[in-house]
C-alpha cells in the first residue's frame, strides 16, 4: 500500500512541472508586450506632432489621438490583468485535476 509520503512526493514533482508549464515565461512575456506597446505609442506621438505642425490634423483631432492612445493603454492593461487571471484559473484547474489523478494513481494503482 502506498504511503501518504508517496502521494506528496508524486504530487510535488508533478505540481512543479505544472506551475512551470502554466506560468513559465508569462511575466517576461507581459513585460516585453508592454515595452513594445510603449515604443509604438512613442512613435505615434512623434508622427501626430508632425501632422499637427504641418496642419494635417487640427488641435482637437490631435487631442483625440493622444487620448485614444491613453485609452489604448488602459485597454491593454485590462487585457494583461485578464490574461493573468485566466492563467491563474488554468493553474487552479490543472492543480485540481493533478491532485485527483495523483491520489488515484498513488492509492488505487
Amino acid at each position: 500500500m502506498a504511503s501518504y509520503d508517496d502521494f506528496l512526493k508524486n504530487f510535488e514533482t508533478a505540481a512543479e512541472a505544472l506551475i512551470k508549464k502554466d506560468y513559465g515565461d508569462f511575466a517576461s512575456q507581459a513585460k516585453s508586450d508592454v515595452d513594445s506597446f510603449m515604443q509604438g505609442a512613442k512613435t505615434d506621438l512623434q508622427n501626430w506632432t508632425k501632422m499637427l505642425v504641418q496642419g494635417g490634423v487640427s488641435k482637437e483631432e490631435f487631442e483625440s489621438l493622444v487620448q485614444g492612445d491613453s485609452d489604448l493603454l488602459e485597454l491593454h492593461m485590462l487585457k494583461q490583468s485578464g490574461l493573468a487571471a485566466a492563467r491563474a484559473d488554468t493553474l487552479k484547474n490543472d492543480l485540481i485535476n493533478l491532485t485527483v489523478s495523483t491520489a488515484i494513481n498513488t492509492f488505487l494503482p
Binding site: D44, N47, W48, M51, G56, V57, S58, E61, S64, L65, G68, D69, D71, L72, L75, H76, L78, K79, G82, L83, A86, D89, T90, N93
Partner: peptide, 27 residues
C-alpha cells in the same frame, strides 16, 4: 481630416484587438 481618420481607424482597430485578444485567451 483625411490624416486623422486614417490614424483613428488604426487606433480604434488596435483598441478592439485588446478586447478580442482577452476573449480568445480566456479559459
Amino acid at each position: 481630416s483625411k490624416e486623422f481618420v486614417a490614424e483613428k481607424d488604426k487606433q480604434i482597430g488596435k483598441q478592439f484587438d485588446q478586447i478580442i485578444e482577452l476573449e480568445e485567451n480566456k479559459p
